[in-house]
Design a protein around this nucleic acid. Structure first.
Lengths: 243, 243
DNA sequence: GCCAATCTAATGTCAGACAATTAGATTTCC
DNA sequence: GGAAATCTAATTGTCTGACATTAGATTGGC
């Protein structure tokens, strides 16, 4: 492993790339220990701080973890579903907030993906998932709930729906889509009547899943999407009218 | 912005978190310039190398970019769809390769998500998307194509299908699901007969999209999923039988 | 007024040092 | 002889101070 000392790119970026490739392509396996920083700096013919910057880049992506002490060092990290989801959510949230993505587009994407889970979830959801969903529905009906808390509960409800599909890869993929919508949803003010309609739709979703009816679940999700889109249109129209 | 000098966590990690939060929560907006490294090291009361490690962590997530020169510095980066997709793909690929995810689970997730795109894609796909799909189908029929190239073309075909839905958020979300399957697909050896069956299904998908028939598209995708799963089962069974 | 040389502020890199942490080896005491 | 305490070595985390490199801003000459 060498780097190009004539390349315009930073050494630390090159080194990080080289190591990342080794991991992705399997030359470095999970839990394997990388050479110490001193050894790496010799191998790549750069100073230790430069190597360290490269390692920090990899640590930021959860590709490695570091440990201090005698038998310490940098180890190839097993990327857990948890860590991957967290990254997904951060990336998705930023993508939406920084690119003036319309509420409509994001909402469409989210509900399209959720509808995809409906058949699997109707077939496989456990009693636990149903219980979670019912609990969130109950919470959503509590008086005095802030809009933010209402949205958070909405997200929890939908994540239970997705998890019900019993496919961890699917859960991971959808985490970003569901969670990243929350900041957008938080821009909406929900009247009591709005909440009642949403809760009713949540109930019909939970009922359909309990009855293992995929079609009805998908239909209810479509209705909820329409409701959400209409709500957002009204809010944004009102805001545009009198700023 | 201060850090906790008594915390067990690395300073550089704390600093990176503090700045990341500022970006996510909108206190730092796109293209805004961060204080110089020297100023940051004063603010946080740490040395410059420590600040630099923190900045490299953020750069690894494409949250900031740095520029040298007199008016240089670190700037909040607009997270582009491209960069976000690239991250998504890396994360998804690693997640699958490191967690012994079964072919079955990954394949199910991928096709479930793709089926979700079928209605939108049938409605909105442009001539360009159809042309891309036809071109990939043609390539897949070429004799002498390696298995790897066949898989790559398969991925390109499916990405065209997803892009046809005309929702960039959806395209971004699915990029990971589609691309991360490639290494798993590459473990399969495709006989001429296998390829012919897959190509026929690709053609029926393209036909259905051209005719704007959402149901048929979804059905063809389901058939392709069944075909792929069967193929994988055979390959893995044969490999288990005589290692 | 325009162009080239210079200035300047910022990041990129280096060298060397010390502190903190931790596992394992060694020693000491019972 | 065994267990607890201590020591040692390896490694990461951090600091200081310096120099190199880059690219915009400034200034001077014509």
């Amino acid at each position: 492993m060498k780097i190009d000392h004539d390349s315009p790119a930073d050494y630390s970026a090159q080194i990080a790339s080289a190591i990342r490739d080794s991991i992705v392509e399997g030359r470095l396996i999970v839990d394997e220990r990388l050479p110490s920083e001193a050894e790496l700096s010799e191998q790549f013919e750069v100073s230790r701080p430069t190597v360290r910057e490269a390692l920090k880049r990899l640590a930021a992506q959860s590709l490695i973890r570091t440990q201090r002490g005698a038998t310490g060092g940098a180890f190839v990290n097993r990327l857990s579903y948890e860590a991957a989801q967290a990254q997904q959510i951060t990336t998705s949230t930023l993508l939406l907030s920084m690119n003036a993505v319309s509420f409509e587009t994001a909402c469409e994407a989210r509900f399209t993906l959720e509808r995809a889970c409906a058949p699997l979830s109707a077939q496989r959801r456990s009693a636990d998932h149903l219980a979670s969903m019912r609990a969130e529905i109950h919470r959503q009906g509590q008086p005095g709930l802030t809009d933010e808390a209402f949205c958070a509960s909405d997200v929890a409800f939908h994540r239970a729906l997705v998890d019900g599909a019993g496919n961890p890869v699917l859960s991971y993929q959808l985490a970003g889509a569901v969670e990243a919508m929350q900041p957008l949803m938080n821009m909406i003010t929900f009247t009591a009547r709005d909440r009642a309609r949403i809760i009713a739709l949540h109930e019909s979703i939970a009922d359909a899943l309990e009855a293992a009816e995929a079609e009805k679940t998908a239909a209810a999700l479509t209705a909820l999407e329409a409701e959400t889109q209409a709500l957002a249109r009204d809010v944004f129209a009102a805001r545009a009218a009198k700023p």
